[in-house]
């Protein structure tokens, strides 16, 4: 479709002139040499920032690619009639089914955004697409296995994994229902060079498919990837500058503890496949607060905030926070009361 898309809806903006690219390249080279000669890289703050920033990007990029691959395959190879059939299902069935579908999609949060965006653009109800997007990074088997392993030492592996599944599902369904009430065109932010959902052209000659697949794959990868890089820079800067003890010192009670760990989860922007190992180390926080960390982080964090802003319209991040914070807080308090 992209071959069609780029013909029908060409990229906006001026073409990048070779001279401008050459100047930009020279400036970058000069900056690298300058930083190395000035010894700025030896400063501990710079070192911490570079290691954390680069590690988040290196870990996330293959998942972005995986998400872009699936999204491109959905766009090009899944017939529109399949989405039409799904779209005809009642929302009461579509929404929880989409959330539970997260079990079958083993990528972290960076990969689920392009897939959900594509599913919504192809006709899945926006509420269901959002439920899938929020559930997949929490419910996938790798994440649940890492949660079990991390909490084995405390003898709470099954409780934490079950708590994560239940609260993750509840958050996905509630947030999907609350934020997915508008049409795809109203929810999705259009991108330069991409047809809007209403204008998408469903029919494509078979020879164009490989070209279209390649174009969608690269387009999604570069679009999502650039926002993940920006988000990783934000998360690394926050991790480098803000001491975790600043928040940890505030948090002994369940309510404040849960809110504080949601704040830490936002700042750290960890991959959902690793966050349980960090959560288990936060022993000064109540167990319910640790669950809040594990459910809130994969749904809203610094790098995702930028990615969501680029993918969805109308202050999506703020509206998601308004839904996610009370749901996760209530769930974590309920879990605390159950387990304690």
């Amino acid at each position: 479709m992209s071959g069609v898309a780029t013909t029908e809806f060409p990229a906006l903006g001026r073409p990048a002139a070779p001279s401008a690219v050459a100047v930009a390249g020279s400036l970058v080279a000069a900056a690298i040499v300058g930083v190395r000669m000035a010894g700025i890289g030896g400063h501990p703050l710079v070192q911490s920032f570079v290691v954390i920033f680069t590690s988040i990007v290196v870990e996330a990029l293959p998942f972005i690619l995986l998400g872009a691959l699936v999204a491109a395959a959905i766009e090009v190879f899944v017939p529109q009639s399949a989405f039409d059939r799904v779209a005809r299902l009642p929302l009461g069935l579509q929404l929880p089914a989409a959330a539970v579908g997260g079990f079958a999609f083993p990528v972290c949060e960076c990969g689920s955004v392009p897939v959900a965006r594509r599913l919504i653009a192809k006709g899945m109800h926006p509420a269901s697409g959002l439920a899938f997007m929020l559930a997949a990074p929490i419910l996938n088997p790798i994440v649940l296995a890492s949660t079990v392993i991390a909490y084995r030492g405390l003898g709470l592996s099954l409780q934490m994994a079950a708590g994560r599944v239940v609260l993750g599902l509840v958050l996905a369904v509630v947030a999907g229902w609350a934020l997915g009430g508008e049409s795809a065109a109203e929810l999705l932010k259009s991108r330069p060079g991409e047809p809007t959902p209403a204008r998408a052209v469903p029919v494509m000659a078979p020879p164009a498919r490989s070209v279209s697949f390649a174009d969608h794959l690269a387009s999604d990868f570069f679009f999502m990837g650039s926002f993940v890089v920006a988000g990783a820079a934000l998360a690394a800067a926050l991790q480098t500058v803000i001491p975790q003890s600043l928040v940890a010192g505030l948090a002994r009670t369940p309510v404040v503890g849960s809110l504080a760990l949601m704040g830490i989860a936002f700042v750290l922007s960890l991959c959902s496949e690793a966050d349980a190992f960090v959560a288990v180390s936060l022993t000064q926080f109540p167990i319910g607060a640790q669950l809040a960390f594990l459910v809130f982080g994969p749904a809203v964090d610094a790098k995702l905030a930028l990615l969501y802003s680029a993918s969805f319209r109308r202050r999506f991040v703020g509206r998601l926070l308004i839904v996610a914070v009370p749901v996760v807080l209530a769930g974590s308090l309920w879990f605390e009361a159950l387990v304690r």
């Binding site: 501990p44 954390i52 480098t240 803000i242």
Partner: peptide, 13 residues
């Protein structure tokens, strides 16, 4: 680049 004492102080919960 490496994580060092600055990161250790910041990352200690």
């Amino acid at each position: 680049a490496q994580l060092g004492s600055q990161a250790a102080a910041n990352k200690a919960p």
